[in-house]
Simulated scan of single mutants.
Amino acid sequence: MAKNNKSILKNPYLRISLAILFICIMIVVGIIFFKYIYAEMFSENPRFRLRNVIVKSSGFWNNRADDVIKILGLNKGVTNLFNLNLYDLRRQLEERKGEGIAFVEISKELPDTLKVEIIERIPQAILYNKKSCMLTDKYGTIMDSKYFQDVLSSLPVITGFKINEKRNSNYFGQTITVIKPALILISIVNEDYSDLEIRVINLYSPGKLLVYILGSGNKIIKIVLPFEFSTDPLTSNAELAVSSRILREKLNELRELLKYLNWKKNPFTEINMMYKDQAVVK
């Protein structure tokens, strides 16, 4: 019997199998031991439980730690920093576009602090009317006005369009393209024509922008500007480039015309810039 055991042990294939089995057992034991040590030192160590959340931003979300904690489902004194996936936390916040969040940076500061930096979207206009709760940024993202109460009075209104969604849909966070001509006009004016104070942009008429600006003596002046635009992505970019160039040319003409009309003190309430090399003043 002993002789048979010795012959079995001398079998090279059996010896290799036993060695592999031993190595596998040691690896499993090592993994279990590592997990135990890791848990004791980090993921279950009370020293690394969350106690402070610091939120920094330039607008509504600044110092809103309680709101961020609620959104992310964190528990002070319970959640362990080493159990947090920063990518998932950042994604959860950045998905809330309608609440004005654009980009987020999150970092851990051991032993017990989570730092959150939020870059907020900048509202460019109110949609439909001054009492609307819907705002938009320069990309056409719809946002809830309650996150931007301090800037509402200075924003122009974009109206004369429809959102192709169900009536009871939650629009916040959606991006719409139909208002792009108005957003381009606002962007150009903010950059180079700050003397033109836009109050309303009406998109009702295809191929043109009906713009209402504040003139001298707080008089509202209607300006009609050309702007061809298609929502077809295959043609819209090229068309936008041409329309934007024409729009800049018309704004240059409008600026000079307003200076002349104000100097002449001629009464007027409407300027139609739809015609080439001329304008109709009423």
Rank of each mutant, 00 (worst) to 15 (best):
Q92T: 12
G100S: 06
L183V: 13
Y139Q: 09
Q149L: 15
R91T: 13
T159V: 02
D137A: 04
I119L: 12
T136L: 03
F172G: 07
V78L: 12
L127M: 08
N80A: 08
G140F: 03
Y139F: 02
L183G: 13
K166P: 04
P123D: 07
N85R: 14
G73E: 14
V116M: 05
N80C: 02
E165W: 06
I71F: 12
G73V: 12
L110R: 13
N75T: 06
S132K: 07
K162A: 11
S169L: 13
S107K: 14
I186R: 02
N80S: 10
T141N: 11
K162T: 10
G98L: 09
G100C: 05
Y139C: 00
L155F: 07
N85E: 11
S132E: 09
V104H: 04
L152P: 03
K138N: 11
F161L: 10
N83T: 06
R167E: 13
I179W: 01
K108G: 05
D112L: 03
L86S: 10
L74V: 08
I101P: 00
V178D: 11
G100N: 04
V157S: 01
T177V: 14
A182I: 05
L74E: 03
G98T: 03
Q149I: 15
R90T: 15
M143L: 11
K76A: 06
I126N: 03
T136Q: 02
P111L: 05
F161P: 01
I101C: 01
V157G: 05
D192C: 14
I158S: 01
L86K: 10
E165V: 15
L89R: 12
I71N: 08
Q174Y: 09
D150A: 14
L110F: 12
Y193K: 13
I188M: 15
R96A: 10
S187N: 15
E117V: 06
L155E: 00
F82K: 07
N85K: 15
V157K: 09
N129P: 01
I101M: 00
L84G: 05
D88F: 11
N85D: 11
N168M: 10
T113K: 12
I101G: 00
V189C: 12
T113C: 14
Q174H: 06
Q124H: 12
Q124V: 05
A182H: 07
K146F: 03
E105I: 14
Y171V: 13
I184Y: 14
Y171S: 08
A125I: 06
L86G: 09
G77E: 10
G77L: 08
I71P: 00
V178E: 07
N83D: 12
Y147D: 04
K108P: 00
G100F: 00
Y87I: 08
K97Q: 14
L127S: 02
P111Q: 03
I184H: 15
G98F: 04
E94T: 14
T79S: 15
T113V: 05
P111C: 02
L86W: 08
I118T: 04
V157M: 01
Y128W: 07
N129M: 09
D137W: 02
E105D: 14
S154H: 06
K131Q: 09
I71W: 11
Y128E: 10
C133A: 15
N190I: 11
N83F: 01
K70L: 13
K130Y: 07
D112R: 06
I101L: 02
V189Y: 13
I122A: 01
Y147T: 05
M134E: 04
D150T: 12
E165C: 13
N83V: 07
I69F: 06
I179C: 00
Q149G: 14
T175W: 01
Q92D: 12
N164H: 11
